[in-house]
Design a protein around this nucleic acid. Structure first.
Length: 265
DNA sequence: TTCCAGGCGTATC
DNA sequence: GATACGCATGGA
């Protein structure tokens, strides 16, 4: 890792990293690129402004301590994506996907934030998911902790315009508050055990559970299979998906490739 | 207007 | 276990 502390900013020199590809590829829904070209977002209630300048990334107004404790982990800077892509590129389709958006990194998000985000994602499109999460943060003055939602009734979430998903959010909050769901404990379980635990929440099925574990708990063996990945599997992997390390990260390249390739071709 | 979106609950067989 | 259908909302 190569970085400098400059005034109040962190300057990060990092390869295999593109902000557009990482922050706007459907794994996180709270990053917005403003007209100044900078990304404004947050992990839970840790805000960050980040942008590219020359050959380094600027983490604006960020203390070294917060960089090392929060953002180093969040941007998965300890993982060698060059090595992962070398392995993936032995597969023809993955080779194209990795070349198509070579700067994708898997964000290590907060478990609760991921759970909430992907409950909202079901049968929904990305711009609308972002809108609902933005209104959720507006309603609570920041991304709500489970305890902030204690006792919340679905009708109280009407301003989100989340539709049928509101009751699922309330059930998730209740089960986490009650201790019926222990996200820290699930972190230590196998993907199968984690699935079994998470799907006790109303509105959480296999796909949302896998997303929660992949993005929120860094369980890179999880391979969320949504409509786009089903298309990838049907079109390119009729005989099954190969056994690869961190297949969840491979999934992220494939998802982005399948979802956007027509736009550029 | 109709179709679809990073699915899931429920009913039915 | 698999299959069919409804679901809130809003953009294309």
């Amino acid at each position: 890792m190569d970085y400098l502390v400059r005034n109040k900013d962190i300057h990060l020199f990092q390869d295999n990293f593109d902000l557009d590809e990482t922050l706007d590829c459907g794994q996180a829904f709270r990053w917005e690129k403003a007209s100044d070209g900078k990304y404004y977002g947050a992990k839970m209630n840790f805000p960050l402004t980040v942008y590219k300048e020359k050959d380094y990334f600027v983490l604006e107004n960020t203390r070294e301590e917060d960089f090392l404790n929060v953002w180093y982990d969040y941007f998965d800077l300890a993982t060698d994506y060059g090595e992962l892509k070398r392995i993936y590129s032995e597969d023809e389709t993955l080779c194209k996907a990795c070349g198509y958006a070579s700067g994708i990194r898997l964000l290590r998000q907060d478990p609760w934030e991921s759970l909430v985000s992907f409950i909202i994602s079901q049968n929904n499109n990305i711009p609308r998911i972002k809108g609902i999460i933005s209104r959720l943060c507006g309603l609570y003055g920041g991304f709500p902790e489970p305890s902030d939602m204690r006792g919340t009734a679905p009708e109280e979430l009407e301003p989100l315009r989340a539709g049928f998903r509101s009751k699922y959010l309330c059930d998730a909050a209740e089960k986490v508050n009650f201790g019926e769901i222990d996200l820290d404990k699930i972190k230590g379980l196998s993907p199968e055990e984690g699935r079994a635990a998470l799907t006790a929440i109303k509105g959480v099925g296999p796909k949302v559970a896998d997303c929660t574990m992949l993005y929120g708990m860094y369980k890179t063996d999880c391979f969320p299979t949504d409509v786009w990945i089903k298309r990838v599997l049907a079109e390119y992997y009729p005989n099954g998906f190969p056994d690869l390390p961190s297949r969840g990260i491979a999934q992220q390249y494939l998802f982005h490739y399948m979802r956007t390739k027509q736009d550029k071709e």
